[in-house]
Design a protein around this nucleic acid. Structure first.
Lengths: 182, 182
DNA sequence: CGCTTTCTTCATAATTTTGTGAAGTTAGAA
DNA sequence: TTCTAACTTCACAAAATTATGAAGAAAGCG
């Protein structure tokens, strides 16, 4: 039986040409997961997410995730539920297989921003109630009203920002694909 | 000795004209705190922050916060440390008094955005290491590089967004102050 | 039609976070 | 100088989160 699994070697496939799960990759995964955790994401969810980001295929099943993160497969389930609620990961199932795979998309961040949009909506509603509670003509009322206004502004800006990002990204890709055209 | 303090009445100042800590205000505080918690903020910190937002003066000492939140003053300390690291609250001390007060600013959000800026910086660095770890010519490497690019883009956009916000806000204020000029 | 694989759910255990009271520290007041 | 008011730190208790193994369910395979 494996006692503590502290192997410092790749899990499998030493010389396949495809980079397996080397220690440096694990280091990236754990570091970014820690940063996400610090920013408020659940720890396990952060680890799963980082792990998927660093995976060539961008998708893994729960068994593979459990192996890489040295954690029981059951622990993956809750993490994935959280991530899919956040629209950071989607579930997919290859036809003809029971096995589910969890995938990060190239434009994962679109989902995250869309989610932020809904969150902002709730916050704005809460602030509007708050203004009523403290009274609109008080200092606190003005502060809360302005905060609601700020979030509303942000919400509008966010979608436009995403449009600009896509334009920016496409420009980058064009530059990468055909720099020899000059 | 007070046994459980479950009073449903304002803490003080019933008819002073200034609205004290009415139940509706507490409700706003708890609701918004819950939403912030859900978004990843520590619970106690969220409650303190919401409480300050709903306070007319925008500033309170730890004893007052402890009263309003029905919590021991010691619990305030950690929450405030967290909030000031986040640049959501600043400490101030009236000259000639030992008492510290914790304040939210009118433009609290500027600090939050500035903080986000630093966080994004760390993330970008982490992603650049990640690209090295998986290899720049792999799918994962391209995904990580693009993610770093995305965060860099966001970082730039954020500061411009804040400028637009201030312009927007000033326009609103002008409209509020002098709508009779037509 | 039952076996195997894979995910989920559940109860429980372990860990981490959060809250508390008490003691310590510091600044101003008498 | 000594006292008081206020915050902080510390050790420990309470609560919440997270991880686990086992049992259950669902889809394909033989």
């Amino acid at each position: 039986m494996v006692v503590n699994g502290q192997s410092n070697k790749p899990e499998e496939a030493d010389e396949k040409g495809i980079k397996p799960y080397y220690p440096e990759v694990a280091e990236f995964v754990e570091r970014f997961a820690a940063e996400l955790t610090e920013a408020g994401m659940q720890r396990m969810a952060a680890r799963v997410f980082a792990c998927l980001l660093a995976e060539d295929s961008g998708a893994l099943g729960s068994v593979e995730l459990a192996e890489r993160l040295r954690v029981s497969p059951a622990a993956i389930s809750g993490a994935v539920r959280y991530l899919s609620q956040m629209h950071l990961v989607t579930r997919e199932r290859e036809p003809g297989s029971r096995r589910e795979r969890y995938r990060v998309h190239a434009d994962t961040w679109y989902g995250a921003v869309a989610d932020r949009d809904r969150v902002l909506g709730r916050w704005i509603a809460t602030f509007e109630r708050g203004v009523k509670a403290v009274g609109p003509d008080t200092s606190a009322g003005r502060r809360l009203a302005e905060t609601a206004e700020f979030f509303g502004f942000m919400r509008g800006e966010l979608s436009r920002m995403m449009e600009r990002w896509y334009a920016h990204r496409d420009a980058l890709r064009a530059a990468d694909d055909g720099p020899a055209s000059s």
